[in-house]
Design a protein around this nucleic acid. Structure first.
Lengths: 195, 195, 195, 195
DNA sequence: AATGAATGAGGGTTCATTCAT
DNA sequence: GATGAATGAACCCTCATTCAT
């Protein structure tokens, strides 16, 4: 029963945080919606921030774990990139607003959160970076700064989710392919005519 | 002197809004930091929202105008894309904090703001889209959905600015070239070996 | 204990509203005087207006109910008028400050309040009007516009309470009789010598 | 020219004060409406209160002077009362909202204003009182406490102006007569049948 | 474990007043 | 005489947090 209340609060909170953001979601609203007393939330969590972090950590864990698991040499570099895009799109699809919080650095709550997010971000970059480097070493990819390419891949992938009411069309598979294709061959594709 | 105070307030505000977001930046804080009375802000602006919009409109105008001017046929498609990237990077460099506000859609304040930003975003997409289509028609670019490619270009360009304390290295010229290169040729470049 | 706080706030508020009016009575002042936190007032009432209305509705109900109960044919017209005066004087005596709020229409807060007060006022007028008409029909009273006479009776009755530090003397019984006498016979009494 | 600005301000102010009351009329609004700078008002008047008092004193003077002039023995007691009612109704008609301020003691601004109003009120009562006493002495009026009757006359006269959207009908002459008649003969008129 | 009444710091905003020009 | 930009105290209200029960 103990865990039930805690879970109930977290699930209600994640929905509300995702819908209206951290600042605009009050403890009262969460308590109301979760059908518990306000004091109950403070029995289970130290503060509003603590509640938020607990959610982020729990919900984000699966996502980040999946990314970290791509850091294996039995996957081809292209496969790593493809799976990265796919995983992110799926996560965004399932946790729409929460994803925005994890992806953007605007809703910075405090230093602890910022540092946690930066760490996760660096880890994601590192996974991609390694795969890219492997691809370059094998001659599969062209010479380029792997770290920065990783960053551009991550940003391109964001095209999958709403960006001022504009986003990629199609189901997850299609969207993944589109982004992967863009990342792999760019606009010109094989057509190299130097600017 | 009249305009000095207004400018002072706007510059202080843009810094604080960018640092801590709209919600977490109080009028008191802005007034303190700008070394004016709280009432002074309300002499120059109708409300906190009005202050925010005034900043967005005034500072963002030059940036968006420059993008719209790229919509000319005497520029090659590649040139349009290159100039787009360059313009955005320069804007980000000069208005670092403001750029974060303009780029992120997390701090959506209200419908008016949302609609303004969406309109500007659609216009930017349209400019790129046209250029891409021209490139495809001329055989310069490979066949692809121009609208969605435009979106991915925009997102890739965001790699130029801080993304959880990680960004592209080099001066503006270098960074522009890196992004342009990525967009043009992708990771594989001419090396096409289908996944 | 729950109701104690609410009552405490209402009683403090009615005193202050009556002393200094709605506009000039701040929530802070009420909270201070009632020895509760400002937030406590907002726990019990939605807004300053809600507090005001709650007082009016709760405290005024008994008074208006008593008036409406005079609308019975087993009471002689004179008796209705006498009881009306008596009821109002008693109410004023027991709710001195509140009475000032109910009687004056200067502190009109908003449409809802205005309409509520007008409705109650019309009902009071109607009760008196019916009684007057009955008295005229029976030949007890002289021919006269019953509606307007009702209005004058109401205003005369206001003489019982402070009017720029001047009011009728005596206990409630005496004051009721004085006003009743004035209303019945006027200044000249039976002495009719046309002006 | 000096007096022109001052007059302009006062006339604009009296209109606005009358329309929206003292509290709800801001100096800005008056300045705007009068088409002068805010500072100009403060050059002509010490404060918002001073502006208000200046209006009250000036506009109220004519009214109160007229009442005081009724304190002459060449007027019959009835004539005094009749003229009192008539004067008040005319004043109310010409200065509708301002009249409410003068008549009600709810919009008490401060001690000075309160005392001024009470003094004027006492003087008005005194004029009526003397006339009543003369009428009683001459056998014209029946025996009664002249001071308190004066108060009731004043209150009855208030029936002429809006009282929660209910007031006497007819032109000034008619309304004066109705009130005079009520005051003189009451409801029963000559018909004395003791309750 | 759970509750909800109570709190007060801080939010955005208004406005009478001042003063350099 | 006249102006209006600047001020800051005070306004109503919100909400994260506490604590007696």
């Amino acid at each position: 029963m103990k865990e039930d209340t805690r879970k109930n609060i977290m699930e209600t909170a994640v929905k509300l945080f995702a819908e209206t953001g951290f600042k605009d979601t009050s403890i009262s609203k969460i308590a109301n919606q979760a059908d518990v007393g306000k004091g109950t939330i403070y029995w289970h969590f130290d503060s509003k921030e603590d509640l938020f972090f607990s959610i982020i950590k729990e919900k984000g864990k699966a996502y980040f774990d999946k990314i970290l698991q791509l850091d294996r040499s039995d996957l081809s570099p292209q496969e790593v990139i493809y799976q990265y895009i796919k995983g992110r799109i799926e996560f965004i699809d399932n946790n729409h607003k929460l994803a925005e919080m994890l992806i953007s650095n605007n809703d910075v709550i405090n230093r602890e959160f910022k540092e946690l997010m930066e760490k996760k971000h660096r880890q994601s970059v590192a996974v991609l970076e390694k795969a890219i480097q492997r691809g370059i070493d094998s001659g599969e990819f062209r010479e380029s700064p792997s770290n920065e390419i990783a960053l551009m891949i991550i940003n391109s992938t964001n095209s999958a989710h709403n960006n001022f009411s504009c986003s990629l069309k199609g189901d997850n598979e299609e969207r993944t392919k589109k982004i992967f294709d863009f990342i792999m061959y760019g606009l010109a594709g094989g057509k190299r005519n130097e600017k």
